[in-house]
Structures are given as C-alpha cells and as structure tokens.
C-alpha cells in the first residue's frame, strides 16, 4: 500500500500576472517531520503556503493533506491544519483569551481545558486576559502559535514564524516544534533565514523563482564531506596554492586573505598537507576544519541561477 503523506504537493502551479509564481512544485512531508521551505523573498514560499491553507487558488496541480485533496474535501482537509500565515493578525480589540475562544468555538473538540493547556505552553498566562493591542510582537507571535495548536492539527504550517521573536523566543519555538514533531505532528516552516532552518528542520526544500531547486537532509549539511580545511599561512600564498594543487589535483583550492582553503580531507591528508607546507618553507599558524554552512551552499545553488539539473547534488 502506498504511504499517505501528511502533505503532498503535485505539480502545483500558480500564475500571477501571466508569470508562474509557483511553477510545477512537488514535494511531500512525512509524518512527524519538520520540513523547511527555504528561498529568497519572492521565491514563492508564501504563495505556496497560502495555496496549502486555501487562501489562494491554484492554477494547476494537486495538494493532498493526509490523502485528502483540498479542492474536493476542503473542510475535512482544513480541519487537520493549523497555521500562521505571515504575521498572525489577531483581533486587537479582544483579549488574547477571547481571540482563542473565537477559534475554539469553530474548531472540533477544543475544550476550555485545552485552551488553558495551550496558553501555558506558549507561556502567555500572565497576559492572556489583556487586550491584544497591548501585546508586543513576540507575544502576538506566541498567541499565533497558540491558535494554530488549539485543535491539535496533524499538519502545522508556520510562515516565517521567527519574525519578531527574541533569541529566547526562537529557542522556545524550536523546542515546541521538536516536541510536537516527536509526537507525530508534521510541520512546514518557511524562512529566508538559513541559520534558522539549519537549526530547526529535518529536511529543507530550496525554492527559487517558484521552482524546486532541491531537497536536502539538514544532517547532510554537517557531514564531514562538506567540510573544508583552512590553513593560515604567512607569505607566498600563490606558491602555496600551486603546491597544494600538485598534491591533490582533484580538489579545488581557494585563497582567501591569509588563508588557503581546500575541500575536506581525511586526517592523514591534513597532516600530509601540513608537512609539505612546512617542508617547502611556509609558516603555518593555524589549521581549522570548517563545515560548509547551509548558507554557503544555498548561495552556491541559487547564485548559479541555473535549473535543477545544473546543480550538483553533493552529499547524497
């Protein structure tokens, strides 16, 4: 039997002003997974999210939530989704609690006990009976998370959830997300901030110009194979570079400031390179192993501006 994914997009396309803002986008999100949508502003992340929650219509393709086509079973599909789309705008003339009551009333199975539970989870007990207009951006964001979690959705969608959160708030949010995912909730997060995605996601889909560039496991990013070795050297960098190229012609060598950078190697290789540099009379002040960040790889991928085929799928 085919496994039913919590969320599945098949060739989803959205046209705006004659242009494909989202272009034949396909991916699936597994149960209990935190899935990131990464891309620069205007890449189509928010449009994609708005199509999933039914705020924007599709021009083509299908979206399935736990196997339910959102166009054919809209209400059933939406029951399983909790979402924050961009900033969570709440009724600022109501208290936080009354805002939650608004949603509790119209969702199945939300009791007062559940509301209290969620309020405690997002640590808004102190302010919940104050009007939302007195809330800080971070408090609004947390109230947004609370409304999204109320009905225990199996799919949680967070569009740029860390906007306006302080470092503590971001840390807390990551913890909630991990706890929920461990309990089986699937989470889709969008962001243009790479460091965040690296910290919170299991897999990341890179989107540009509405197209899927690639999907990566975040753990791959930190693989040894993606690491690079930096040698800090005094003087004669071009000569040193030549020396390394002779030693390992298959590897790319770069010069950056006083550093010589070479792609990841085994410990033995690093020792060998060091020995050669010293023997050739270079003074080595330091050796550092640096992991390639998601950011660097992201820039590599999107900077080429090429299609999917041109991007090498390293680390897989």
């Amino acid at each position: 039997m085919e496994t039913v994914h919590t969320l599945e997009l098949r060739n989803v396309t959205k046209k705006m002003k004659g242009k494909n803002v989202v272009d034949h986008l396909s991916f699936e999100v597994r149960k209990g997974e935190i899935f990131g949508l990464l891309g620069p502003n205007g890449a189509g992340k928010t449009t994609t999210i708005r199509m999933i929650v039914g705020l924007i219509s599709m021009n083509g393709g299908e979206i399935l939530v736990n196997g339910l086509d959102i166009r054919k079973n809209y209400e059933k599909a939406m029951e399983q989704i909790g979402a924050i789309v961009e900033n969570p705008q709440m009724y600022d003339y109501l208290t936080g609690y009354k805002n939650l009551m608004q949603y509790a009333r119209i969702m199945p199975g939300v009791t007062r006990k559940r509301i209290d539970e969620v309020v405690k989870l997002v640590e808004l007990e102190q302010a919940i009976h104050k009007k939302v207009k007195t809330y800080s951006l971070g408090m609004r964001q947390r109230l947004g998370v609370a409304q999204a979690l109320l009905h225990r959705p199996s799919l949680l969608i967070l569009d740029e959830p860390t906007n306006g959160l302080d470092p503590q708030g971001m840390h807390d949010l990551r913890n909630y997300m991990r706890t929920l995912a461990d309990q089986g909730t699937s989470i889709v997060v969008s962001s243009h901030i790479l460091a965040e995605m690296e910290l919170m996601c299991d897999r990341v889909a890179v989107i540009q110009h509405g197209k899927l560039i690639r999907i990566d496991n975040v753990t791959n990013v930190t693989d040894q194979a993606q690491a690079r070795v930096h040698f800090l050297i005094e003087g004669g960098l071009p000569e040193a570079k030549l020396l390394l190229s002779e030693y390992a012609p298959e590897k790319a060598v770069e010069v950056s400031g006083k550093e010589l950078i070479i792609e990841a190697s085994t410990s033995q290789e690093i020792a060998d390179i060091n020995k050669r540099l010293i023997e050739a009379g270079f003074l080595v002040y330091g050796i550092q192993l640096k992991k390639k960040t998601l950011e660097e790889r992201f820039l590599e991928m999107t900077g080429k501006g090429g299609g999917v085929n041109e991007v090498s799928i390293a680390g897989q």
Partner: peptide
C-alpha cells in the same frame, strides 16, 4: 484591512 481575515479563512469552513 487588518489582515485578520486570513486567520478566519483557514478554518474548516467553505
């Protein structure tokens, strides 16, 4: 105008 409409439209109602 306030953006609250999207919080309402993502509920399970046509």
């Amino acid at each position: 105008a306030k953006g609250t409409i999207k919080m309402l439209l993502i509920r399970p109602y046509s």
